[in-house]
Structures are given as structure tokens and as C-alpha cells.
Design a protein around this nucleic acid. Structure first.
Length: 474
RNA sequence: AGCGGGGUGGAGCAGUAGUAGCUCGUCAGGCUCAUAACCUGAAGGUCGCAGGUGCAAAUCCUGCCCCCGCAACCA
């Protein structure tokens, strides 16, 4: 296979530490990216941070830090978590990066302006700082913003607008025809329903006085770009759009943008509209995942059901967390995680399942085989590749665990531990087969559990029983 | 209000018309290479409720109830 594959995560606000939801989407992307590398696709995996937002500025103020220092510190934290999660991203784009990001964002704006789709409009209304947007009278509760509990300011603002309304029909047709494919189907239906109502033009800039760190609007230094052109553009600027086209030519359009359902409309309406306006090809696919809840409820500090990825990483390790996220959280629907369920799954699937299987096979191998083995490379079964091509990561993992169960069963059936005493040659033959099958299982784990894949490979090749891969937890 | 997702044995899920399935947990038996693990078997469900269509419904239609999310530090 000699295809290219470009995958992106959303970009994250460096205003607080990343939580399990961020860990999930990033891990999901990593699994998909590693799979594509495994089957030989030329893969590019992008992640990054959305730094020019009001909420980030507020975070810095709250922390009493300089905005630049604050963002750098938060982004370092992102990198540390991603490293711990074994995220194999090729690039981390920061929208504050004037060299990497800004030229492309400006180029995109200019293209849209040249198409006649950017216009200036004066707007007077109630501005909520928390929203970083105008809100309507109707939305107010006791004269305050219901979300932020603050009294909005009546201000007059001159903004640039993007003529998104013009693109309702073309966007709809691209989505209906799956030229821009939206997965799962339910999300596609949802966005088509929205498109039926027609899209409104969207505000595309803010006065620089209000958002001091944004990207200047080309030809108007008094305004900075609002989030759409500022942030969504990262998917192409990272590749060098407007700067150096080599990667861009190779990898755009994206094969998949992985996003949460909360940001679906931005990616399925505004972003395609922008690209259509600028004459840039649309991404091929949006993979819209759900939310991770805990105990059936959204995680929130108030409810006290937040689970920090760091906590799980420390207690169970990187691959255990990756395993849980890949197997037990659906890529398409809301998922659930509790400490109790995590432990149950860890013990059942990893300690008793995979870990124990590796121990029993390698114990036999170490005792009875004189040297390690390395099975010939074979293709992957379709029960494994087909789900992965469709991003059904959980189904692919389930298949691997079926293989694990089958191998446990095979040991019971063939009784190599007994046979080897009565007929050493026959026993060794069985044991050799078992180690080779274990190796193949390890290889299939590569996208989900890269370190475990390595550990199993090493054990088989060196004919040495590994340390407990996943010690039981009580 | 509106929009979206969901309600299947103790837990988590699969199953869009034709004998209700998987994993975990529980119980009994087996095995001994292994991390008190592994294998086999069993118990356990009127598939949210009420109607309707069909020879046949978890699965289609109608109404209702309940949970979750869409607004908050938030993918």
C-alpha cells in the first residue's frame, strides 16, 4: 500500500490542564495514525493548541501570568501528557506561532476576501466577555448572561463578516454526496437538518482592543481574526499553506478530522464554507465522537466525578489507559468510565487475559525451546483491518481479544506442558506455534498498545519470559 | 420549549423482523504451563411502558415515562 493519510485532532485551549476527553480524542487519533503507518500508508498526524482565544487570555490573567509565558507553560503540559500517552504526532501546531501558522491564516482570509465573501458590518448589541460574543436580550436572565452571571456591556462594534449563507447549498450537496463524509450517520443527519434551516453569515473578526493576541486582519490592523479563520485554518497552515507548499501538496485534503460532537457544526458548516470560498479542497471526512461520561453523567467538578488521565496513567500505565479508551469507549457514541470499571477491565482483559497468556506461553518457550523465533510477516486478517479502516477501533480490539481467548483455549486443548514430557519433539512444535501466534497478537496490538507490542516481540525473539506485563490489582 | 443520543439478565454492551447474544461478575466442575490465572458447564432477561401493523417485533408505526447531552473549567 502506498497511500497517504492525513489525520488531525481538534486543537485544544491552553487554559487548563487536559482532561480525559482530550486524552481520548488524541489517543483515538493516535491509534488510527499508528494503524495507517502499520499498513504502510504515508501518514501525517497533526495536533495543536488554539491559543488566541479570550478564555486563554482570561486563564493567564487568573494565573497572574504573562499571556505568552502562560501559554508556553500550558502547552508544555500538553506535550508532557501526550508523551506519557505515547502519542505519535508528527506536528504540534500553535495558533500563536507567527511563523508557522499566521501566514496561512492570512492567505486564507485574503482568498476569501478576493472571492467577495468578506464584508464589514457595524453591529450594536450586548457583548458578553465570557462568551467572547454578542448575546441577545432574550437570552438574559435578570439582565445577566445566564452562563457567566455577568452583566453584558452594550457596545457598538465594527466586524468583518463571512458570507457563509452563500454556501449553504454547496455544503449540503457535498455532505449529502459524502464528498465530505460525516461519521457516524446520525451526525450527518443532524447537520443536514441544520443546513435545511439555512446558514447565517458569521462574524469573522474582533476589534484588536478586545483580543490583543490574535492574528491581524490583512489590511486592517485594528481588527484581529475571530476563531474561525484563526483556529480552523490550523489544519492547512500546519502543512504549510501560504508558507511552504511541500507538505500541503502531499497531504491535503485531510483524510479525517476527528472532532467532538460539540464542535460538529463548526467543522461541518463554517470550515467547508471557508474552504469553498477560498477554492481549497474540502477534507474527506469528519469523525465525530461522543463524550466520555463517568457513572452515566458528564464529568464535572461540581459532581466530583472527574477522572484525571494522569491518575489512571500513574496507577495502571500508558497501555492500560490506551486499551481502555480504544476498547471500551465507542468512537461514535458517548462512552462511560469509572474507576471500578477500569479496574475490572484491567484485571480481566489485561492481567488475566493478555498478560497471563504471554506469561504462560513464554514460560513454556523459555523452558523448552533453544532459541527465539520471529514468524514470517503475514498480512492482517480482515476482521482486524476492516473495522480499523472504518475507524471502528473498539471492534478491532475486540477481535484481538478473541484471538487471545482462542490461544488460551488452544493451550488447554493441545496440552503442550504434558506433551513435551512424553514427546519432546511434538511438544516443542506446539510451543513454537504458540509463541508465533503470540507474536502475531502482539503485532496487532501495535496501534493500541505500542509498548506492549514491543515487549511481546522482544520476549518471543529473545525467547525470554517477560516481567509481568500487567500485574493484577486488588 | 426545541434538537440529538439512550433505556436489553447484577454491571458494561452487541443485536433494525424469524430459535435473545457477548464480556465482566456469581456458582459448580476440570486443568496445572501461567499473574489464586486458564478451560468447561450452570444460574440469571416478560429487550422502559401502553397500544398498533405483520404469519412473525428488542427490531417497524403511534403515544407516554425516565436518563443523558446540546449552557458552565469541557473533546
Amino acid at each position: 500500500m502506498d497511500k497517504k493519510f492525513y489525520i488531525t485532532t481538534p486543537i485544544f485551549y491552553p487554559n487548563a490542564n487536559l482532561h480525559l476527553g482530550h486524552a481520548y480524542v488524541t489517543t483515538l487519533c493516535d491509534v488510527i495514525a499508528r494503524y495507517h503507518r502499520l499498513v504502510g500508508d504515508k501518514t501525517y498526524f497533526l495536533t495543536g493548541s488554539d491559543e488566541n482565544a479570550q478564555t486563554v487570555i482570561q486563564g493567564a490573567i487568573k494565573a497572574g501570568e504573562d499571556i505568552h509565558a502562560f501559554r508556553d507553560r500550558m502547552v508544555e503540559g500538553f506535550a508532557a501528557l501526550f508523551k506519557r500517552l505515547d502519542i505519535s504526532y508528527d506536528q504540534f501546531i500553535r495558533t500563536s506561532d507567527e511563523q508557522m501558522h499566521w501566514p496561512g491564516a492570512k492567505r486564507l482570509w485574503e482568498k476569501m476576501a478576493a472571492a467577495g465573501d468578506i464584508y464589514k458590518k457595524e453591529y450594536e448589541g450586548l457583548y458578553c466577555v465570557g462568551h467572547e460574543a454578542f448575546i441577545t436580550e432574550k437570552e438574559l436572565v435578570d439582565g445577566k448572561c445566564p452562563d457567566h452571571g455577568t452583566v453584558p456591556e452594550r457596545t457598538k462594534e465594527e466586524n468583518y463578516f463571512f458570507r457563509l449563507s452563500k454556501y449553504t447549498a454547496p455544503i449540503k450537496s457535498k455532505i449529502e454526496s459524502d464528498e465530505l463524509e460525516i461519521l457516524p450517520q446520525s451526525r450527518k443527519n443532524e447537520i443536514l437538518a441544520l443546513l435545511d434551516e439555512g446558514l447565517q453569515d458569521v462574524s469573522f473578526s474582533r476589534p484588536k482592543a478586545k483580543v490583543p493576541v490574535g492574528i491581524p486582519v490583512p489590511g486592517d490592523d485594528s481588527q484581529v481574526m475571530y476563531v474561525w479563520c484563526d483556529a480552523l485554518s490550523n489544519y492547512i497552515t500546519a502543512l504549510g499553506y501560504g508558507r511552504d507548499d511541500a507538505l500541503y501538496k502531499e497531504f491535503w485534503p485531510a483524510d479525517v478530522h476527528v472532532i467532538g460532537k460539540d464542535i460538529l457544526r463548526f467543522h461541518a458548516a463554517i470550515w467547508p464554507g471557508m474552504l469553498l470560498s477560498a477554492g481549497v479542497p474540502l477534507p474527506k471526512r469528519l469523525l465525530v465522537h461522543g463524550l466520555i461520561r463517568s457513572g452515566g453523567k458528564k464529568m464535572s467538578k461540581t459532581l466530583g466525578n472527574v477522572i484525571d488521565p494522569q491518575e489512571l496513567l500513574e496507577e495502571y500505565g500508558t497501555d492500560a489507559l490506551r486499551y481502555y479508551l480504544a476498547r471500551h469507549i465507542s468512537p461514535f457514541e458517548d462512552g462511560d468510565i469509572t474507576r471500578e470499571h477500569f479496574k475490572e477491565v484491567y484485571n480481566a482483559d489485561l492481567a488475566n487475559g493478555l498478560g497471563n497468556l504471554a506469561s504462560r506461553i513464554m514460560q513454556l518457550a523459555q523452558m523448552h525451546l533453544s532459541e527465539g523465533t520471529r514468524p514470517e510477516a503475514v498480512g492482517f486478517p480482515k476482521e482486524y483491518t476492516e473495522p480499523l479502516e472504518q475507524f471502528e477501533v473498539n471492534k478491532a480490539v475486540e477481535y484481538v481479544w478473541q484471538c487471545i481467548a482462542a490461544l488460551d483455549h488452544k493451550i488447554t486443548e493441545t496440552q503442550p506442558f504434558k506433551v513435551v514430557k512424553e514427546n519432546p519433539e511434538q511438544g516443542k512444535k506446539i510451543i513454537l506455534e504458540l509463541t508465533q501466534e503470540l507474536y502475531i497478537i502482539g503485532r496487532m496490538l501495535n496501534p493500541f498498545m505500542p509498548a506492549t507490542n514491543e515487549a511481546i516481540k522482544k520476549a518471543v525473539v529473545e525467547n525470554k519470559k517477560p516481567e509481568n506485563l500487567f500485574p493484577r490489582k486488588d
